[in-house]
Computed example of a mutant assay.
Amino acid sequence: MHPGFVRAPELLPTPKAADLPAERLTGERCVWCGKTATEALSARISVVKGELMRWEPRSCSYCLCHEAKRVYTIHIGVCARCTHRDYCPDSRALYELGFPK
């Protein structure tokens, strides 16, 4: 994948939409903790109550950073393209999101 196409928030898994209250589905509240949302994750498509639904999850800055760190750690352990000297565009994007300067 071209590095310019990588958006780290799109790489983060979210809870199942069917299990979330309405304010987390609409992006008013953080999809993970329920606090006030400040960061957009990207549009998602999920099946809710048997119907296909487009929703736009959002996150608080703490959960966004925490999830990016968690996914980055998993990613570098399983990605065939990542080595100790060179990392793939996905891992670099996750690192920048989870470990801001």
Results as ranks from 00 to 15, higher is better:
M1L: 12
K16P: 12
K101E: 13
S91C: 15
G77K: 07
A18C: 12
D90S: 12
S91T: 00
P100C: 07
L64Y: 06
I45K: 15
H66I: 03
E67M: 15
M1G: 12
D19N: 12
L94T: 01
A37F: 03
M1V: 13
Y62N: 08
D90F: 00
G34Q: 09
A93L: 03
P89Q: 04
I45V: 15
E10T: 10
H2F: 04
E23H: 14
E56S: 15
W32I: 04
A80G: 08
P89E: 05
E10D: 13
G34V: 05
T26Y: 03
E28R: 15
A37V: 05
S42L: 02
W55A: 05
C88S: 09
F99C: 13
R70V: 04
C33L: 08
A22K: 11
M1P: 05
P9D: 12
S42R: 09
G77E: 11
K16V: 10
A22F: 09
C82P: 02
A93E: 00
R24M: 14
D90Y: 02
A17I: 10
R24D: 06
C79L: 01
L11I: 06
L97T: 01
S91V: 01
E39K: 11
K16A: 15
A80R: 13
L11G: 04
W32C: 00
P3D: 06
R92A: 00
P89H: 04
A93P: 01
D19K: 14
E28F: 05
L52G: 06
V78K: 05
R70Y: 03
L64G: 00
R7K: 14
L11Q: 02
Y95S: 10
G4T: 06
Y72G: 00
A8E: 00
K16E: 15
G4W: 05
D86R: 13
